[in-house]
Structures are given as C-alpha cells and as structure tokens.
Simulated scan of single mutants.
Amino acid sequence: MYKYVIRRLLVMVPVLIGVTIVISSIIYIAPGNPARIALGANANPEAVQALEQQMGLHKPPHVRYIEWVGNILHGDFGESIRGGREVSAIIAERIVPTIELAVVAMIITLVIALPLGVISAVKQYTWADNLSMLFAIFWISMPSFWLGLVLILVFSVRFNVFPTSGLNGAIFSATWLSYIALPAIATGTRRAGLLTRMTRSSMLEILNEDYIRTARGKGIGEAAVIYTHAMKNAMIPIITLIGLQIPLIFSGTVIIETVFSWPGMGRLLVNAVMARNYPVIQGAVLIYSIIVIVSNLMVDITYSYFDPRISYD
C-alpha cells in the first residue's frame, strides 16, 4: 500500500506541473491588458505601468512561470491586486468554510442516497422503489442554484427559519448549523439523486449473486444479508461515483456560495474573476486542482478496504 501511495504521489508531480502551466497561461490567454482591466478604463498610464511591473507582465512568460512556481514552493502565492493582501492568507481564510460546506453536503448526499438506494433495490418494483426513483429523477433534474433560491424564498423569506446568507457561529454550534443548512441541502440533494440510482443498480446486481442466495438459504437474517454481505460488495461502483462527486461538489460550491453569500473559495474565485484579480485566480484554481487529485487518491485507497481482492502491493 505504501509503495502504491508513493507511486501515486510521484505521478501527481507531472499532473501538477501541467496544471500550473495552464494556470499561469491565464493572463496571456485572457483578452486585453490585465493591469488596465484591473484598474479600470480611466486609470492613468503611470498606475497601469506600476501594476504591470508588480504583476511581472514586462517579463517573458517562461521567466514569470518559473518565478511563480518557485514562490509557490516556498508558500508564496503572491499578493492580491485588490488590497495588497497575501493570496495565501486569503485562501487560508476561505478554504475552511468551503471544506465545511462540501463535507456537510457530502454527508447529506450519503445519508439520503445510500438508504434510499438499498430500499429501492430490496423492494424492487414496489411503491417504495417507484418513490425512490421519482425522488432521484426529481433531484437530478433540479439545478442547485435554483433549488438554493427556492430554499431561501421558503425557509428564509417566508417562514424565517434559516438565515438568508453568510456564515456565523463556531463549528457544530446551533448558529453554525442554521447558516450551513440551506447551502448544504442545495449542494447535497442533487448529488443524492444520482447516487441513489447507482446504489440501486449496484445492489440489484449483487442481490442476484449465488452467494447471496446461499446466505439466505443458511438462514442468515435478511438485515445481515443486505448490510453485511451485499452492501459491502456493492460499494465499489458506489465509491467510484462518490469520488467523482467530490470534485463536482467543490466546483458546485462556486455557484452556491454566490447564491448564499457564503465566505468560501467559490465566492472568492467568482469575485476574483469579475475583478480580474489574477494572483487570486491562480492560487484558488491551483488549490481546487490539488483537492481533486488528492480526493481521487483517497478513493483508490478506499477500494482495498471494501474489497480485499483489490491489492496495491
């Protein structure tokens, strides 16, 4: 296992190099002068020239790339064009709320999808199965941002149960839960629809296996058959889908954080794009890329726990 992890970490190096090349090319791909766009059309030439010097636009692209990567290796992501704060400090503030939102959204996804998928498979072609699939299709078809607006309208404006936006309170406190509830539901329920269908399909395949019929023939209780024998063997495709959903949840927070004014990485990235704040854009996109790569590695490692036949030695 350790050798496999080390190999995967080594493979991450060229992937990250490719990501940094793409990210560092943003300034050159984007139309217009980044310094003038950031300062506005009415900025005086001296201010534009000073910002160009600060951003290093007068240097050749390869020199700027090498300097940027070298600074990142030392933990220096540069300075924000707006305010002059260090990008690393800004990201450190914003990454925690985004992780909190993504984790709670994933918990909501799993709590909804796994039981519904199992019930739908066990009760195939019954009203429970039809109701579960109706739920899955309904949430898959509903955009997260639209659901977020509906939740705000109903639970914040109409009944005043939850706050409309922002984040407040210590983690796991009642105040914190009230602020994170709506954005987490808006993010997690749509993913739950897809995962419910996958869980049902995977469980149906396993429940038709010979060893499941043998376990039932030995008199093992139905609950033990489902959750001890069937569920664990059905988890491989489910884990694969969960691994694919993790990056989607993080990318989905970009819209949800804007709808709910959530102080996370997604809203930071949107504001940075609108302001053409390239140092912040580069740092945020790089962090998102690292999260995606690490999540894929964690999913691969999880395979061996649920299926001992999978070995990385």
Rank of each mutant, 00 (worst) to 15 (best):
V87F: 12
I108V: 09
L51H: 02
I17T: 06
V87Y: 03
H62M: 09
G70K: 00
I119W: 09
I107M: 05
E93H: 10
H74P: 13
N71Q: 15
G117N: 01
R82G: 06
I90G: 03
I21T: 07
F77H: 02
K123H: 11
S120I: 03
A89V: 03
K59A: 11
G56I: 06
T98L: 11
E46L: 07
I72M: 14
L101A: 12
R94V: 04
L57N: 10
T20R: 09
N44D: 09
A113K: 00
V111A: 06
D76K: 07
R94M: 11
R64H: 04
H58M: 07
G56P: 12
R85A: 14
A47I: 08
I23Q: 00
H62R: 02
S88G: 12
N42Q: 06
P45R: 01
R36T: 10
V111P: 01
A35G: 02
A121W: 01
P97G: 14
M55E: 13
L116E: 05
R64Q: 04
E67K: 09
N33R: 03
N44M: 10
Q54A: 03
P45V: 14
A38F: 09
G84A: 14
W68E: 05
G75P: 13
V19T: 08
S80W: 02
I91V: 13
V19Q: 03
V118W: 05
A38C: 13
N42G: 08
S88N: 15
L110P: 01
A92E: 03
D76V: 09
S80F: 08
L51Y: 03
